[in-house]
């Protein structure tokens, strides 16, 4: 599908690093609860648009890195991101054909699943009581996903034509 897979891989890593930085950037406290899970969004995108399931290893590595940065239980984000990546890769071929709205809803379902997994791990490790507020990032993710997809598509096409 792609002429220069090396450059695509480079783009993937660059975008994932950007996602990590976006997660780390300090936001005003009112906005923090709205912050989407950037890394999960990008992992979903790359699982959807690369053909091999190697993205799962990438998801695992970046998940662990995020765990270390956030000081959470080692493997928490790793687990949720690998699960997300697996769900996407399994049906990537069909999903690439679906309409915009269907895809958006699917993305929200994956992110919801991601939130549920993390809440479950938190509950097991320190009896965290989930709140409805935890679902707010889904709304922002729904707004951001189309733009993110458009941006990454443009980047990929420009790589392919150059």
């Amino acid at each position: 599908m792609n002429k220069n897979p090396q450059q695509t891989t480079l783009l993937m890593h660059l975008s994932l690093l950007c996602a990590l930085l976006l997660t780390l950037l300090p936001w005003p406290s009112q906005l923090t609860i709205w912050q989407p899970h950037w890394l999960a969004l990008l992992i979903a995108y790359w699982s959807l648009y690369t053909d091999d399931s190697r993205v799962m290893y990438v998801a695992f590595a970046y998940g662990l890195l995020l765990d270390v940065l956030m000081g959470s239980l080692l493997g928490k984000h790793g687990m949720s991101l690998v699960a997300l990546s697996f769900l996407v890769t399994k049906s990537a071929k069909q999903l690439r054909m679906t309409s915009f709205w269907q895809l958006l809803i699917m993305v929200l379902v994956w992110l919801f699943n991601d939130i549920v997994i993390r809440a479950a791990i938190d509950w097991i490790s320190f009896r965290y009581q989930p709140e409805l507020l935890d679902l707010l990032p889904l709304l922002t993710a729904a707004v951001i996903w189309p733009w993110l997809k458009y941006l990454m598509d443009r980047c990929q096409t420009s790589l392919r034509t150059s």
Partner: peptide, 17 residues
Amino acid sequence: SPLFKFLMLEFICIVLM
């Protein structure tokens, strides 16, 4: 197969946690 990779990575994560 993706399923194998998935199970392996999840297993590693659980062990790590």
